[in-house]
Amino acid sequence: MLQVRSLVLALLAIIVVSCQTDSNDFTPDLGGTGTGGSLAKFAIVQNSLLVLHENAIDQYFIQHDGSLTEGRSLTFFSGGLETIYPYGEYALVGSNNQVFFLGFDDNNFLDLISSYSHLTACDPVVAANGVAFSTLRNSGCRFDADESLDVIDIRDIETPVFIKSYNIEAPYGLSVRGSHLIVCERGGIALYGISDPYNIVLKGFFDFGNDTPLDVIHAPTHLIVRTDKGIYNVSYTDSGVFQILAKID
């Protein structure tokens, strides 16, 4: 009996060793920073980690060895901070009444640069190439304003300028890359062409069936979509044809 148990243990040891060998096969390049979803509450901008709270943002300096030291903490008495998005040397913060644009002073301490408000935004903000996109959702807010996608010119980030508002239904997270904007809305995902921010064009929509998409990240060749029920790899074409490649489980 003892011998059998030893044999079982030996076999288990082999299995464990081979599993470890397997995981060693995967050696991703960890240099630089990655990409979070638009609902993120952590963002890395330059050499700072920014941590979002409901009424404040904590800055930590990232040291050479990767450890953190405390930077500045900005308090927002209006509260309702929801999302933070890194944009070059800036950070965009979505709250339930404004979009805030943050940067750094001469000593690299976090600083408020400007803000933008339009009705009541309950949702996130992303940006690329001098244009910011913010979804306004009222589903949880229960007032009768339209739900919309706001487009804001931030080429001069000190003076954000409203460009246009587009009606959309039940929006959540969104992601922008190049001339493509993906928005989680209406229980699916939509692709918009944004070459002309004054006239963005709905190119395609994919109904996610029983799932409700909540957030999305652009990978180099496809999308990663987080729904209320799981996480999926999804391909899309320039003309807005989507296909689920795999559910990640």
């Binding site: 991703p28 990409t35 990978a219």
Partner: peptide, 10 residues
């Protein structure tokens, strides 16, 4: 499942 974060293929 909650927040997602992509770094290369990881």
């Amino acid at each position: 499942g909650g927040q997602i974060y992509l770094k290369g293929n990881l």
